[in-house]
Structures are given as structure tokens and as C-alpha cells.
Design a protein around this nucleic acid. Structure first.
Lengths: 336, 336
DNA sequence: GATCGCGATGTAATCGTTTGCAAAGAATGA
DNA sequence: TCATTCTTTGCAAACGATTACATCGCGATC
């Protein structure tokens, strides 16, 4: 903190060239002659020079970082996506800042291009902030939505086919002979909840199956809400033989609670999850689920953001829909 | 990106004062008169001014951010700690950057105070980098270790009492009548593995129980390694009646795999985990485990780093040991 | 009435880099 | 041989804030 470190000027002096040459040798090597470049590199080595990012960013009028807005950092679903994002951003020299929207941060602060060069938004539940009505929208950095999105918004998004995912779940259950199928949903105002529920309804309709309102259970994607839903399931007089959960976390919470009450899965009820989080394959019973390519989502969102930041606002970037897949495991079984 | 946004000069002009006054009004309000302050604030509002962090950081010779080195971002154990860190850092205006050491980043880059004002290291497996032999160590920013640490290193650390945690696990199993107890360990070069295994051995010795080498199973903290260990457990001719796992993830993987092979927990083998990750309470069976205060670890590490960055290198900050707790659930049972 | 101290404000240098512009050679072509 | 182009390099002006220092009133003190 105290000691002064070598600056570009020191390197220039050591190499016997100007600071401009050093700068060029480091950031656009093709602009300087091979020998000069070697000289500079040697001087960098000798002095132990490290670039000062604050100075560079100031001069370049950028921040050198992107911000990822996540609804809940403590949720393992997101950590994998973050991992995918950093794997793309770090190599090209961008810092990745994370902001947990649940911690009630001053999210508006990040929506300014002298704060971040770009944003990846994993929480579409910030309409008034994100849409930025009024003057300050002019200063908004590029935004890419991942997983979630805002309806009637034409900014790029990297999502999965949620309707299709729900359909896969229903297909699978019907194939196993189930007719009485329930759905454990996420928070009502969430776009994923809405889309998956709609996919569920359409698929049920396609098979001519009844959609019973009392079998549409409410949750919020969390483990705890899954456990709570189990109580409501237990209280039903007439129970479905299978349930499609809108998240793996809820599925685990649901199964865990049923187990405590002596109900066995899949013998007494089949359960399908959504996400394929790491624990799913190791849960008891191993969870049948709809797999999302979480790493790929993160990577794709990051690449898309990079493209947009470089001004390539190509249309093919607008709405990228990634594939989901049904993973058959032990939490579903042929109806007795 | 293109449009120029209001600078401090614009605010000064709008308020009819100098830039120095604006700066002071915003960062040390007590230095300007109340009326001037009001004037400035109004001008800020009117112009929509947002501070440029790059410029401020350059001038203040700092970066405005701290870096958290995590061994594996995809591991949910860490996301909760990150969450604790950001909850402390964000309100005081620090950015939190995350670097996944498993992604083989140029970690050295972060060990320079023009890159980060401080570091929280969750992965002590970087000795040669972190210790920074030689010249560049002079430029190293303050470091605080959390969870893991480096032996014979006197930098501050925020850890838990791992030996005691292991002892609690053994106490609990012995209390339930177990004498034949195994231990599923983490990666061999990890300080947590070493400490917990040592705690396990000491506790066993205290009860006069035999420590059988073939019951000391190797793992790496991951779900997959837990599942793999289950195979080795199954292959044993003489099996322990209980096993203490060095992480919840391994415990889940272990139980999940045993379940697939038709072995029941806790009827046929009792399992104790470590960490108390969120899923533990909802696993089947709910996991008996040693709980770590993950949020608190993150918060404490962050506060400690702040203190060190402000030059308060008090001795009471050197080694903070937080409490662990045994959580009794359903994966352990009295021996038949 | 002169001096001092203090609070409030302004002036201007500074943080460390990048980059537009210009100049100096070197190379090319007529 | 001279004009023209191209490469390579240096000079110096930004980028937008903070802050040491100077200034200016103004009331208090002797």
C-alpha cells in the first residue's frame, strides 16, 4: 500500500524508449518492431512492472468489469452459471463483479457505464430499475439477460426452452402411466414459473388430462418451500400420483419432507425436478429432472455480452434458446 | 458507451462552485457549509451526476475492490461465504471480484495492490503464489485467509475449530454405541483434511477405539468422491458401523450411492457430515452434521480484511476461531 | 487597530495510462 | 535524384477525480 511500485515510465526508462512505445509494445505488439518489443519485455521483467488498471480504465473510458446481478448468491443453481461467466470473461481481461439483488443493494448504481461495461442479469424481477425510464437510461451499459428475462423487451437473452422442458416432464410421466399429475410452482411473478406452468398446462391438455387447481402447489424455488408444499400435498384428500417441480431444490425439499412423514418416492408418488443441479444425481432417490446446461448458459451469456459491448448487435444474438434434456433417474416410476 | 456523461465539472458549474467543493461536499460533507452542500446536492440531482470510480481510484491510489480466491465456484459451500463477504463489503463501497483458482487463472495478477486492495483467500493450496517469495511481495495487498490457511503463516485467518468438530462427531457416534468408526477424508494435501483427521484420531484414541487404516477412506470433498468411496466401503470384508465424512457433499454422495446398492442409512451404517450445507436438512435421511457458520465466516473475514486495510493490524485479528455445532438429524442411529 | 486563528472556498498539480499527431528514417517508385 | 509511402517512434494532451496549498473574510484577542 505504501511503497511506490514501478510505473510505465520506469519501464520506459529501463528500456530506453518512451512510455508510448512501452504501452504499445504491451497492448498492440504489432505496432512496434520486434527488437524494441523484446527490449520492453525485458525491462518489464526487470522492473516487475504491473499495469495500473485504474489509470488504463480512466484513459480508455471504461471500467474493465462487468456486473452479474443474481437473485440469490446462496443458491447453488447460480454458482455454476457464474462459473461459466468467469471462464469466458477472465481470459479477456474483464473483472466479474457480483451483486446480490436480495441484499437490497443500490442496484441502480450498477446501471451506469462508468460503473460497469456491461451487465448480465439473472434476476428479471427488477423492472423499474432495469428499464430505467427517463434520462439516465442514456448511460446504461449493455445488458444481457440469462435464464430469466423481461417480457416485451428486446435486449439479448440467453434462455432455455422452459415450455419444452415442462412438456418433457409431462411426456415422461404419462409414458409411465400417470394421469393424475400435479405441479409445484415457483414464485408467481417469476417468468420461469409462468412459462413452465404454461408448458405444463399445454402438455396436460394435449393428453386430455385434467388440470386440477388444488394440485397446482405454490412455492418459491427454494428447498424450504418444497418441504412446505409436502405438507399441503399430505393434506390433500385426493392426491396426484406424480408431481412436476419447477426446480430441483423444491423437489429435494418435497421428497425430503415426504420421507420424514413416511411417504416413499417413487413408490407412492413420482417426482420430476428441473435444473439438474449437482446433488440431483446423488439424491435419495436420484432425481429425474430436466437438465439445463448451466455452464453453457453462463458462457453464452458472457460471449453475447462481449459481442454487444464490441458493438456487434447482430440479430442472431437477440434470443438464444438452449436445449434442455430429460434425465431419467429413480424418483419416477411406472404407476402401480 | 458513446455519449458523454456529466462530470464533476458540470456539477460544479451548475452549482456555481468549484470542483473541489463538489468533491468535498460529496465525500467529506463536514468540510463545507450546509447551504453549499445543499446547493451541490441539488446540482448533482439536476445533472444526474455519477462518480467515475476509475478516476477516483487512480487519484486515491487504490482499486476500490477486493478479490476472493475460491477453489471452486461451482461448490455451494462457498456461495454462502461469498454472500457473507458481499454483505459487508458492498455497503462500504468495495467491489467484490471473484476468481476461481480451479480455472487456472493468472492468480499472481491479483496479488498486487494495483489490482486489488485486499484479498480473501479460501484456497490455501497456492503456497508458492501466495507466499510470493522475492521482490514482488512488496506489492502484495493485505490478505485474510478464511476456512483454509497456510501453516506457519502469521497472516490473519478466520477459521473454525476443525479438531473440535471432528471430536463432536466421534462423541456423538460413541454416544450412540458405535465402536467401529471410519473416516472419509478430503484431499490429502488440504489443511482441513489434515486437521479433521487428526481430530478424529485423537477423539478415537480418547475412547480407546482402534483406528483402522482400511477404514480411513480417501476423497476430495466432492459428491462424486463420496459416491466412489461407497464402492470401497462395499468392498470391505469387515465394515465399520459408522463413518464420519469430512464434508456434507461427500456424505451425500456416499449415502446416495449406498442407497442405490440397497444399503440403508442409518440402519446399516450411520453417517455424520461436515459443513451443514442447505441440502443437509432435507436429504434422505436428513444429515447429522457439524455445522459451520458460513455467513459469519464470510462476514468476519470481510470485516477483518477491512480492518487490516485500514492499518489496524491488531493481534486480536490474527486468528479468529468460530464455533461449530453438532446438528443431530436422521443419518445416525443407535447401534442395533 | 493590528494580529491571529479559523472556516469555507478556489487554484492547480497530480494519479498512470493511452493515443492523436507529427517527425524521422527507411523503402519504394518514377 | 526526388517525391511518396510506410514503419517506427516520441511528444504531449487528455481521461475525471482528489487534495495540498493558498486565499479570503470575519470575528476574537490583546
Amino acid at each position: 500500500m505504501i511503497k511506490s511500485y514501478p510505473r510505465i515510465r520506469d519501464v520506459a526508462q529501463a528500456a530506453g524508449v518512451s512510455t508510448a512505445t512501452v504501452s504499445r509494445a504491451l497492448s498492440c505488439p504489432e505496432l512496434v518492431s520486434a527488437e524494441t518489443r523484446a527490449l520492453v519485455l525485458k525491462a518489464v521483467e526487470a522492473t516487475g512492472y504491473r499495469i495500473n488498471h485504474a489509470a488504463r480504465n480512466l484513459r480508455r473510458r471504461r471500467t474493465g468489469g462487468i456486473v452479474v446481478l443474481v437473485p440469490n448468491l446462496a443458491n447453488p443453481f447460480f454458482s455454476r452459471i457464474l462459473s461459466g461467466i468467469t471462464s469466458v470473461m477472465a481470459p479477456v481481461g474483464y473483472n466479474v463483479l457480483i451483486a446480490d439483488t436480495k441484499q437490497g443493494e443500490h442496484i441502480r448504481d450498477y446501471l451506469h457505464h462508468n460503473r460497469a461495461d456491461g451487465l448480465i442479469v439473472l434476476d428479471a424481477k427488477l423492472p423499474e430499475d432495469v428499464l430505467m425510464a427517463g434520462a439516465s437510461a442514456r448511460y446504461e451499459p449493455p445488458i444481457v439477460f440469462a435464464c430469466e428475462w423481461v417480457e416485451n423487451d428486446n435486449r439479448p437473452r440467453v434462455v432455455i426452452d422452459n415450455m419444452h422442458g415442462a412438456a418433457l416432464a409431462v411426456d415422461h410421466l404419462v409414458e409411465l402411466g400417470h394421469h393424475r399429475i400435479g405441479h409445484l410452482m415457483g414464485p408467481p411473478d417469476n417468468i420461469l414459473t409462468v412459462t413452465r406452468a404454461e408448458g405444463f398446462r399445454q402438455a396436460m391438455k394435449r393428453y386430455g388430462l385434467t388440470i386440477r387447481p388444488d394440485w397446482m402447489l405454490k412455492g418459491d424455488f427454494s428447498l424450504a418451500s418444497g418441504a412446505e408444499a409436502a405438507h399441503r400435498w399430505l393434506a390433500l384428500e385426493d392426491r396426484p400420483s406424480a408431481i412436476f417441480c419447477s426446480s430441483d431444490a423444491m423437489a429435494c425439499g418435497f421428497i425430503g419432507e415426504l420421507h420424514k412423514r413416511g411417504i416413499r418416492v417413487p413408490e407412492e408418488v413420482s417426482v420430476v425436478g428441473f435444473d439438474d443441479i449437482d446433488i440431483a444425481a446423488h439424491f435419495v432417490p436420484a432425481l429425474t429432472t430436466i437438465a439445463q446446461p448451466r455452464d453453457l448458459i453462463g458462457q453464452t451469456a458472457a460471449k453475447t455480452l462481449l459481442a454487444v459491448m464490441q458493438g456487434q448487435g447482430g440479430e442472431q444474438l437477440q434470443k438464444q434458446v438452449l436445449e434442455v434434456e430429460l434425465i431419467r433417474r429413480q424418483s419416477t416410476a411406472r404407476i402401480a
